[in-house]
């Protein structure tokens, strides 16, 4: 079995994180921003897995489970907010939420 070098895994983490970041910054639609955030979270989670396998520790996988559950909760909350947002202003454009200038 061919082993994937650990550096490749970290490059994937960095790529995923940058993709998520660019999506977060460039997208106006709140739904896509939420999805980009999920990608960034997964990048972080993958980094924990990689670290766990590198040092042969189970902690990395434990944290992965934790991040996964946090992500699930976050998506639940985020989607609920999105529904409220759509009901409220009829749009998901994040730039329309600047009324409070804060």
């Amino acid at each position: 079995m061919m082993t994937v070098p650990i550096e490749h895994g970290f490059v994937l983490v960095a790529l995923l994180w940058v993709i998520g970041l660019v999506g977060l910054l460039s997208r106006k639609n709140t739904l896509f921003m939420l999805m980009s955030m999920e990608i960034m979270l997964n990048a972080g989670a993958l980094a924990f897995i990689l670290a766990g396998s590198l040092w042969q520790q189970a902690d990395g996988q434990v944290i992965y489970i934790l991040i996964l559950s946090i992500a699930a909760a976050e998506v639940g909350l985020g989607l609920a907010l999105l529904i409220r947002l759509r009901q409220h202003i009829g749009d998901l454009d994040i730039d329309k939420l600047d009324e409070m200038k804060g």
Partner: peptide, 9 residues
Amino acid sequence: QNGKLRWYL
């Protein structure tokens, strides 16, 4: 301080 969330980010 313009209220644009993405700018803050």
